[in-house]
Amino acid sequence: MLGELREELLQIRDNEYTVPADTDAYPYAQLLLECLGSADAELRDKLAYTTLAKWILRGEFRHKELRGLLLQALSPNGLFFQIGEAGTDSVFKRAFSVLVVPLALRVHERDPFLSEEQLESTAEQVIEYIYLEQDVRGYVPGKGWAHSVAHTADALAALARTLPDGSLMPAMLDAILYAVSRDDLIYAHGEDERLASAVLALRQADALADDQWKAWLLEFAVLETDWFPERDYIILNRKLLLRSLYFRADEGFAALCLDGLQALQQLEHG
């Protein structure tokens, strides 16, 4: 069956991702969501995800259908599929399901279809996922990108642009700080850049006061462990994010840069 599906998706790709005349896009999208969990990088990423993304952004789904796809992506069979596992193929289902969030929200930005409650629920589930995900591998040899941290950062950036108010933004920033507090792995696949995009999107939402930003940045210099090498892993992951923020900040983020540099100095000499 997967072989047949691959051939169909190759034909769809070669036909510029046009929905086949004999195909109902919404039921077919259910198959695409399942393929997001494949350990086959081409099927998962280049074919299933890309096709789904093209169809969502082209408006191939009615609002009700798109809400259904978002709910399925956030379900126990999507974002929370076998949550808690690490080093297994289940990470692909989770890490690619979260990418449905920014896709849906891009449609919502130009043609609103989600209620305030639905937007807040989506944000709460993405935040919860950050704390529960144990597998933060970037590139998996032989199986392609998992990139759960980078993909989640994309979802947070989209949420920052669409949430109706700033009530959940402190929780989003706390989750980002948690994400760069790993003590078992150093991010090496651009996770800091993607997380920086999420932070800057939150900044641009202009929902938090400067003292809140300062308090958050100063938390980067607070460490809960003195063990080696765990302490160094945490420091380096935090430094990577702070540096990315510094180099991307414009004049309007001067205070953010200053606070980030101060926190970075404390980490370097702590």
Rank of each mutant, 00 (worst) to 15 (best):
A95Y: 00
V180R: 07
I130A: 14
P112L: 05
A104W: 12
E251M: 02
D206S: 12
F247P: 05
D226N: 14
R94Y: 09
L9R: 03
A198P: 13
R243H: 13
Y139N: 13
T225L: 03
R248Y: 04
G260A: 10
W227H: 10
G190M: 05
G270A: 05
L256D: 07
I12Y: 01
N237E: 10
G87D: 12
D211Y: 10
R243K: 12
I83L: 03
L132C: 13
Y131R: 11
Q11H: 11
A201H: 09
R161I: 04
E60A: 04
D24Q: 06
A209D: 15
R62N: 08
Y139P: 01
G84K: 12
Q30P: 02
Q11G: 14
V91Y: 06
L236A: 15
G138K: 06
H151G: 01
L258K: 00
E124C: 05
Q82K: 11
T51S: 07
L236N: 11
L119E: 03
H63S: 03
P76W: 06
G3N: 14
R238K: 15
T51M: 04
S244Q: 10
D184R: 01
L2R: 09
F81E: 04
Q134S: 13
E7N: 09
Y129C: 12
G190V: 07
Q265T: 07
E193R: 11
K93E: 11
D24I: 02
I235Q: 13
L99A: 11
L33R: 04
D232A: 15
T152K: 15
C257M: 14
R94M: 09
D206H: 15
L52V: 04
Y26T: 00
Y28C: 06
M1K: 12
R231D: 11
E128P: 03
C257F: 08
P141Q: 05
Q212L: 15
T23P: 07
A39M: 07
E193H: 05
G166R: 04
E193S: 11
G260Y: 04
T51L: 15
R238Y: 06
E117N: 12
T122V: 15
Q265R: 07
T225V: 09
A175R: 05
F81V: 08
G270H: 01
I176G: 06
L261I: 12
W213C: 01
I235T: 10
F61R: 02
R182C: 02
